[in-house]
Simulated assay, not measured.
Amino acid sequence: MLPWIQLDRATIPGALPGEEGELRLKQRGQEFSIMLGTNELMNSRLSGSEEALATLAHEKIGKRSKPSMLIGGLGMGFTLRAALAVLPEDAQVTVAELVPAVVDWARGPMAPVFKGCLDDPRVTIFEGDVSELIRSSTGAFDAILLDVDNGPDGLTRASNDRLYNMGGLYAARSALRPGGVLAVWSSGPDAGFTRRLKEVGFQADVVNTRANGKRGAKHVIWLAAKG
C-alpha cells in the first residue's frame, strides 16, 4: 500500500489555548486527507453525506428566484459541487472558509477533486469566520449549510460552540429569509441540539445518511426550517 505523504500544514486562525491549532493535508496516490491532530476531518473518498447536506437543503427550500446559499466550511468541495449541480443559474453561493490555506489547497494539489467549482460565476469565497458573517447578515440567505466541525458539540474548536448555542441559532434564524433552512452536518446524533433548534423556533427534522452512498459511517443532518 502506498504511504501517506504530508503535502502542507496550516495554522487555524483564532485557535484557543489547548486546542489543536494546525491542519495537515496528506496524500496517498489519488486520495487526500485533511487532519487535525489525530482526527481525520475529511477524506476525498468519502463524500456522500456532505453532498446530501446540499441536496437535502435545496429540496427543502424548493424552487426560488435567485436563491442565496451560504456554505460554512469549504472542506474538499463536495457540498459546494453538489449545491452547484442543483441550484439555478441565477443562484448566489457564498463559501465561508476560516483557513486561507484550504482555499489554496483547493486551487493547488486538490484541484482534481474540486474540478473547477471555485471558478463558477455563482461562487464567492469569504475568508473568515462563518459565525461572524451570519451575525452580520439579516434576511440574506435562503439556506445556511454548516459543516465546520464534527457536529454541534464543537469537537475540533471550542469557539465553534457559538454557532450551535442558543445565540448562534437565533443569529442563523435572523440571517435566513422566510421559509429558509439551516442545514447542519454531524458525525453523530445530538438530542440536545434538536431541542435547541425547536426552542429557537425552527421546525427541525433529523435525517440519517451515510458517508459513502449506502455504505460507510452513519452521519446526521439537521434540516431546520424557518417558519
Rank of each mutant, 00 (worst) to 15 (best):
D119S: 15
S137A: 14
K198P: 08
P13N: 10
D161F: 05
L87I: 12
A57P: 03
V184H: 01
L145V: 03
K115I: 00
E97P: 00
G14N: 06
L36E: 10
S187D: 10
R196M: 14
L16D: 12
V148C: 04
K214Q: 11
P152K: 00
G73K: 00
T94G: 02
T11E: 15
F126E: 10
P178G: 14
L7M: 06
I221M: 01
E19C: 00
A15I: 13
V103T: 11
C117G: 07
R28Y: 08
G192Q: 02
K214D: 11
R81C: 05
L16F: 04
A85R: 12
D190Y: 02
E31P: 05
K218Y: 11
K214A: 04
N165I: 02
S47D: 12
S44H: 06
I125Y: 06
Q92G: 08
K218D: 09
Q6P: 09
T194Q: 13
L133Y: 09
T194Y: 02
T11R: 15
M166C: 06
A183W: 03
V184R: 00
E19W: 01
A10N: 02
V103A: 06
A83L: 07
A54Y: 00
D104K: 04
A171C: 06
K226G: 08
S65Q: 08
W4E: 12
P121N: 08
K60F: 10
L74E: 01
P13A: 09
G18R: 03
V95D: 02
V102Y: 02
E97W: 01
E51S: 04
G77M: 05
G201I: 11
P3I: 09
D190N: 10
P189D: 15
G29T: 13
K63L: 14
R157L: 15
T194C: 12
R107P: 03
S187R: 03
T156G: 01
A211S: 15
S174E: 14
Y170Q: 15
S131V: 13
F78W: 01
R173T: 05
P17S: 12
I221E: 04
T94Y: 05
D161Y: 02
I221Y: 07
I221L: 15
N165S: 06
D90Q: 12
M110C: 14
V148F: 01
E40H: 13
V207S: 01
D129G: 12
P121T: 07
S47L: 06
R28A: 14
M35P: 05
G216N: 04
A101V: 08
D190H: 08
P13H: 07
A106L: 06
A191G: 05
Y164H: 09
A101T: 14
I134Q: 03
V181Q: 02
L16I: 11
L163G: 07
A82G: 04
F114T: 06
K214S: 05
R195W: 04
T138K: 11
R195Y: 08
I71C: 08
A85P: 00
H219D: 09
K26E: 11
A111E: 14
H58N: 14
E31R: 11
R195Q: 13
L46F: 13
L133M: 04
V200H: 10
I144E: 05
G179M: 09
D120T: 13
A211D: 12
I61E: 14
N39W: 13
N39C: 14
D153R: 13
A171K: 11
R122Q: 12
D161W: 04
S137E: 07
G201Q: 07
K26L: 13
F193P: 00
A83T: 05
T124G: 10
G128L: 11
E51C: 08
F141V: 13
E59V: 05
R81K: 10
V103M: 05
